[in-house]
């Protein structure tokens, strides 16, 4: 049983590492901040901002689209220079990826993404992988236990060698 638990300990460690990497990736690439937080923190690097496209704010310029993005009581002007996107519509909640320009006080974006919905993805994977691991662990443990039981009860010994069977003959 020692090797069995060592093996499953290894599996748990690998699962934990994958989990940590997944959370790190989620924080880096998937989570988005609100316009309110963008105005407060004014980060210098590329960020993802989630908000609703204000109705009637979309203005098309040459090579760019200007609109207002609102969320949590704040509003930011966005200059979008990426490919034309069907998702850029009035009252649509979107994620814009880009950088805050403190001189023009505009958020310069080159990419528009859909709201991640990652809660559903996480739920689906956890609900599948955790019971799968538990199911497999339980089965393997049972096999190992049965081998031990059979060994302890000497079930594997041929019957003709036991005293009882000799007497009965």
């Amino acid at each position: 049983m020692k090797w069995f638990y060592i093996r499953w300990g290894g599996v748990l460690i690998i699962a934990a590492i994958i989990g940590v990497l997944g959370i790190q990736r989620y924080n880096r690439d998937v989570t988005a901040i609100s316009p309110d937080r963008l105005l407060r923190d004014q980060p210098a690097q590329t960020v993802r901002v989630i908000g609703m496209v204000e109705a009637g704010s979309i203005l098309k310029e040459e090579g760019a689209v200007l609109f207002q993005l609102s969320g949590e009581g704040a509003k930011i002007p966005v200059r979008y220079g990426g490919e034309e996107s069907e998702n850029l519509r009035d009252l649509k909640t979107v994620v814009v990826v880009g950088m805050w320009n403190p001189t023009t006080k505009t958020f310069d974006s080159g990419k528009i993404a859909l709201v991640p919905n990652y809660g559903f993805v996480t739920a689906a994977y956890l609900i599948s992988l955790l019971p799968m691991g538990f199911f497999l662990f339980n089965m393997e443990r049972k096999v190992a236990m049965l081998y031990i039981l059979i060994k302890e009860e000497k079930v594997y010994q041929p019957e003709q060698l036991t005293e009882e069977s000799l007497e009965s003959r």
């Binding site: 998937v30 859909l114 919905n117 990652y118 559903f120 993805v121 689906a124 994977y125 599948s128 992988l129």
Partner: peptide, 12 residues
């Protein structure tokens, strides 16, 4: 169209 939620496909 579906965004990130399509990733459920890889387990479903």
């Amino acid at each position: 169209y579906q965004g990130e939620v399509v990733r459920i496909m890889y387990i479903h």
